[in-house]
């Protein structure tokens, strides 16, 4: 089966770029640098094109030109804030861009804090409490109890581990003994978590390697 030329060219370029990136195994070399430079450049260009075609034009200039009065007003506000933000590039006019920056920072902080509180903190606390409900869960009662206890102990000891307060003593600041002990248990949970994270990263990476080697082999076979 013949591969279309477009796919062949694309495949060939992909093949070369993949080898160029894998050449980093022997150390930093010009092939790897070229591949990296190409990736950065293409990514930036593609992002700029996407930003124009999917953000600026349809949501800023199009309403400003063809939109209703309300759309135009909103577009003007957005345009003004954007221009003020661009003034941040020059030292003399940087102060004018503080308005846009303040708007962005304020909105971003509010969204982040509100989402963290309502979307993570409260639901997780409710879920931790409900674990000890021992009703409706899967598994036996003891299993659920042990599971809930382990989760509770791990959560508390991990939080205690990050407590760095100490009291003054003649020999210098010292941490309370029970705080230190619980913090040690939290260290164990933290270590287990880091190990699991490492395993996940490795799994993802090995999967990516498998996919690339499979591509290379497939391309070679197709030739």
């Amino acid at each position: 089966m013949q591969i279309p030329s477009s796919e062949l060219v694309g495949g060939g370029v992909s093949f070369l770029l993949t080898l160029m990136v894998l050449s980093y195994l022997i150390g930093d070399n010009p092939f790897f640098r070229v591949a990296v430079y190409l990736f950065v450049g293409v990514s930036a260009g593609y992002a700029a094109a996407v930003a124009w075609h999917q953000v600026l034009w349809p949501q800023l200039f199009l309403p400003l030109i063809f939109g209703s009065l309300l759309d135009r007003v909103l577009a003007l506000v957005a345009l003004g804030l954007g221009i003020l933000l661009l003034l941040k590039l020059h030292a003399r006019t940087a102060r004018l861009g503080s308005v846009s920056m303040a708007f962005l920072v304020g909105v971003g902080a509010a969204v982040a804090v509100g989402g963290a509180v309502m979307g993570t903190l409260f639901p997780q606390i409710r879920a931790s409490i409900n674990m000890f409900g021992l009703l409706g869960g899967t598994g036996t009662l003891i299993y659920q109890l042990i599971k809930s206890s382990v989760i509770l102990v791990g959560t508390l000891t991990t939080l205690i581990y990050f407590q760095f307060g100490a009291k003054a003593s003649p020999n210098g600041p010292q941490v309370r003994s029970w705080v230190g002990g619980l913090g040690w248990i939290g260290q164990v949970f933290i270590a287990i978590t880091l190990g699991v994270l490492f395993a996940g990263v490795y799994a993802a990476a090995i999967t990516a390697l498998i996919e690339r080697l499979n591509f290379l082999w497939t391309f070679v076979i197709s030739l």
Partner: peptide
């Protein structure tokens, strides 16, 4: 992805996620 599973499983355990498929496995 498998690297995001440790951070996303609590959301599944809390009921915020109704299904979770992790990595190649």
């Amino acid at each position: 992805s498998a690297q995001a599973e440790p951070m996303m499983r609590p959301y599944y355990d809390s009921g915020q996620l109704k299904g979770l498929v992790t990595g190649l496995a």
